[in-house]
Design a protein around this nucleic acid. Sequence first.
DNA 1: TCTGGGGTCCTAGGACCC
DNA 2: TCTGGGGTCCTAGGACCC
Length: 420
Amino acid sequence: MPVYGLIDANSFYCSCQRVFEASIRAVPVVVLSNNDGCAIARTKEAKRLGIKMGEAWHLVRRRPELKGVRWYSSNYPLYADMSRRMYQVLESRVPRVEPYSIDEMFLDLSGLPYDLPTFCRQLRHEVRAVAKIPTCIGWGPTKTIAKLANGIAKDRPELDGVCDLDREADRQAVYRELPIGEVWGIGRRIAERLQRAGIQTIADFVAMDSRAARDMLTVVGARVQSELRGQSCLPLSEVAAPRKGLACTRTFGRLVDNWTDLREAVSHYATTAAEKLRAEGMTASFLTVFIQTNPHQKDTSWYANQQSCGIEPTCDTLVLITEALRLLRKIWKPGYRYFKAGVMLDGLCPAGLQAGLFQTRDPVKSSRLMDALDAVNGRYGRGTLRPLSTGLDRTWRARQSLLSPAYTTRLEDIMEVKAW
DNA sequence: TCTGGGGTCCTAGGACCC
DNA sequence: TCTGGGGTCCTAGGACCC
């Protein structure tokens, strides 16, 4: 029988901030989304103060009881690097590890010659000691059960950060207690639909006729049900599937009402998207540009539109900018105050695989230019060398009023320790 | 002052073809 | 001339995840 584990960092982004700032280790900490819009990570102290996931920060921060909360703009390069460190520790101790998200990894714990509760406690302590990140671990016969166990480990401090749902009897007890909405893969909509049908707890759902579950919730719901019954449907995969698309989209720091700024922003997003593409050694053959005014204000001043086109597979920044701006010209309407824009790339293929029969550009020249661009920016920092169309002032950029240093990924930001 | 930025998978329905 | 079935591909939209 397989045993799947799930290790999940506690308040990951906040924990990353705490690694480098001893003074915030015991105080409530919040990390904000791009543009300092809403709270996307909270420590348990912050949760206790009633700060909800996704709450608009400009509203929350006025509450008097939140005076002592320390908050940060999100710093993704830092979090990505801390995630890598966490993975390295796990990889050295567990035969197979599947990175699932930036702060979660599935573990294959099948057939290990250890007592699992003891082993998992040690694993937690090692991640804490080496990568400096606090975690919880849950496990069971399927990924869905491991995920559920992980949630329980988080909620119940008396479990010392681990939860074992490998035994049927333990699961049944848990299933009777927990609402169906707690299950991975059952979101708000589906939970509501199930509740209307009289299904409240996980036990109710597990007992539901499989055909009825399938008819109501399609194959997705049927799979969740099987997994909860202990039949594994979601295998562990150590190699990430090649991604299908990527995007660079941003809310502006202020509303943008003129063509020049919008053009700069879209050029900038196309540049970033192209950099991501090259970093993964891919080309794209489908490009989408979208713009929108404030979606929270849908009256006559609201406008949203998008345009897509197929392109000769490329990862060339200049080509992507040209195409993106051509699409932008088609959808741009003057007189609106734009709130957000984005560039999305699809039809991703490994670079160098499919040289088109009727190549209209010189691929050697393009790839040399892009290599040079990436080399300069790699050495002297992103954006050192960039197309002029991405703008000089860039006043539309998102707010990041409290961005912490990139402690582990930028040499200038490395911590200085003075001893005397 | 005013609300994130990514991704995935599945299904339904239309177009088109044999 | 009329009618039927079945397959593929594409897209939009919904639901989920972090």
